[in-house]
Each structure stands twice: as C-alpha cells, then as structure tokens.
Design a protein around this nucleic acid. Structure first.
Lengths: 195, 195
DNA sequence: CGGGTGATGGGACCTAGTCTCATCACAATA
DNA sequence: TATTGTGATGAGACTAGGTCCCATCACCCG
C-alpha cells in the first residue's frame, strides 16, 4: 500500500503529454503539468531534471539493452550483425500497446525544436553506447563508429515505419530490414570509390 | 565612421568565450557577457536568440557552402564525391588563424552538455542540408541520407584532427582522407552481409 | 507510542528570455 | 542650421525554468 497516490512519475508524463497536445509545449508550464498530476512544481523537478526530460523518461534502456546485446553477441559475429541484435533487443519496448503513446509523443517532439535538440542528444548517447560496446568487442575505429551510426539510421527508419498508424509489423523485423537496406545502399556507395 | 562602437557581435562572442574559459559556461551570466562587451543584456538578445548561440555565430555557412558544392558538382559525380566536395568547400572556414579560437570553443562545448545538445542539433541540420542537396541531384533514399551521414562523420573526424595543436595539415585534405577511411571501413563492413 | 525515512508542499531566489518604450548617434534633407 | 528619419542601444517590467532550503506528512519499525 503506497504512502501517497502512486505512480507520480507516470502521472506527470501522462499529464505532460496531454497538455502538450492540447495547448503546445511552449504554452504549457511545469506548474500546470504538476497540477494536472496532482503534484507541485517542486515534485516535478524531483522526478525530472528539466521540463524536456518528461518526454524522455526511461530512455536509459536505449543505452543498456543494445549495449548488452552487442556484448553478448557471438564472438565471431560481424559488427553489423551485433548491431542488428542491438536493435532487436529493443523490440520489447515497441509493443502495439505503446504505439499510440509513441506516435503522439513523436508528434509533440516534431513540433518543437527544443525537444528535437534533446532528442538529438539522446541519439548521440545511444550511438556512443553502441560504439563503445563494439569497441569492447575489438572492432577498430572508424568501423565501430560507422557501424553504430548505421544502427542509429536503421533505428530511425524502423521507428518511422513502426509508428505509422497503418503499420502492423513488429519493430525487430522493421529494424532488420532497415539495416539491410542501409547495407545495400552502403555497398552501392562504396562500390565505386569517390576521389 | 560607425555610430556606436563597431563589431558588437564579435565583441559579444569574444567576451563570452573569454568568460566561459575563465569561470565556466554555467557560472557566466548573459549580463556579464554583455557588460564585458560594453553592452547590455537587451542588446545581447538582439544579436543572439539565446545564450548558447553566441558560440554558434555564423554557422549558417555550414548549411549553404556544402549544399552549394553538392549542387554544383559534376552531374556524373558519385554521391560520395559530391560529399567530398561539400567538405572541401569548408576549407576556407578552417584557416590557421581561426585555429586557436576553434579549439578553445570546442573545449568549452565539450565541458557543457547544454552546448553539446545545441551542437548535436546543428550537426543534424548540417546533415539534413547535405541530404536534401543530394536528393536534388537525384540520389535516392536511403543512399542520400547515408552519404550525408558519412559526410558528417568525416567532418567530425577531420575537425578533431585539424583542431589538434600539433596539426599543420589543411582541413580539406584531412576531410578527404577521413572520408576515404570511412569508405574503406564501410566496404569492409558491407562485404560480409549481416543476418 | 515515539523516532526514522522518504516523498511532498511551499516559498524564496536566480537567471534566461520576451516585450515595450525611451533615447541616442548619425544621416539626409531642406 | 534645423528637422526628421533610422537603426542600434538602454532600461525596466514581466514570465517561466530551475535551484535550494525547510517544514510537513504518511508510513514503517522498534
């Protein structure tokens, strides 16, 4: 039995998303979000370091799951195979139930450059985590960085397709496909060296 | 004869960098920067939309120069050749005179995540500009995105090497080399398809 | 029943950023 | 010389994000 009304953080996230959709990110104050979650501004900042973070709660798994997947890939797996495993490790995050939330959230982010800025930083951290995991496998530079960035590109493409309202395919499958498409494009690009 | 003391923007940038180095980005207020440039807080925000932007003044050329270079590349040039031309178009920006400023600035950014966030966004805009320029040449997706991102990776690697105090090589040359290294790594990665 | 513990409320405080209005330095013109 | 226009600046009020500190409250444990 919780001491106070439970799930404060989830309430804040829900209230924030709701208000952002209704009246926009800029026109919503932290005090409003907190109020709608039956909390105060003080408590909001106990749960999130700043206003933007309320839309990036729990994103730490994007650092841990893929890195673990890369670390535990077969020793003889190629870098891009490990990256593929990293993306598939995230399939559990993108379930059909979370589809409405994810697409709404993405629409809010797309409407605000402050949020896109934060998202860009998160992606950079994501890429960095995969890069480090690949380095630990002995993948040299610049291959590790390149493979990690290919993973990010595949992730972005897969997410866009997954978030489409008409989509009914599973994220891991979309990610695998996106990675293969990038691989094919990369092979085409590097087949005829530039310079 | 200028009406007021000239070069207000340059004075603000100089004052900001100086203060950021001395006492850190967080511990420096906009009012302090303005004061050191013999201006007021009001004027600061007339020259820059926010505090971070003072370190990204004039970065618009990173959108225009590369895009123009890609647009004016020979019609039969491969995507990565166009990207190479885009990076070389920036050589004029990275002159030896700007070396001290650039490396100091980069050290300040490296010490503050708020600034890294802004830099990540700028890089995304940079990549997007190159991607669009490639699309206008008829390069299909995902090749355009991939080539643009390879350009960003090459740019980052080249900049790090150029900014090294011991470096005496020209930026365009470093960029070309970085791009070729990435190309080689990409060929190695895609030689043995994953999955 | 009294003392921890952790989440919360409340409010003071600082600074980034916006907005409005007055002022100033100079140019152009009469 | 006087007038008027223009663009950059100064000044100050105001909002909101974010920090900090302290009191309070709900519950657990001894």
């Amino acid at each position: 039995m919780p001491r106070w009304e439970p799930d404060a953080q989830e309430r804040l996230v829900g209230a924030a998303l709701e208000l952002f959709v209704e009246q926009g990110y800029d026109n919503t104050t932290v005090a409003q979000i907190a109020e709608h979650a039956r909390l105060t501004k003080s408590s909001f900042f106990r749960h999130f370091p700043d206003k933007r973070e309320v839309l990036f709660a729990g994103q730490d798994i994007f650092l841990k799951l893929p890195a673990d997947a890369i670390a535990s890939a077969p020793p003889d797996a190629q870098p891009l195979e490990a990256v593929g495993a990293a993306l598939e490790a995230l399939a559990g995050v993108f379930t059909p139930e979370r589809h409405p939330f994810a697409s709404t959230r993405q629409a809010v982010i797309a409407a605000n450059s402050e949020l896109q800025e934060r998202e860009a930083l998160k992606r950079a951290d994501f890429a960095s985590a995969m890069r480090r995991a690949l380095r630990r496998r002995g993948v040299p530079e610049p291959s590790a960085t390149l493979a990690a960035e290919l993973g990010i590109l595949a992730f972005r493409a897969a997410f866009v397709r997954w978030a489409d309202p008409a989509n009914d395919r599973e994220f891991g499958e979309l990610a695998r496909q996106a990675l293969q498409e990038l691989q094919a494009a990369g092979a085409a690009l590097t087949r005829t060296p530039a310079g």
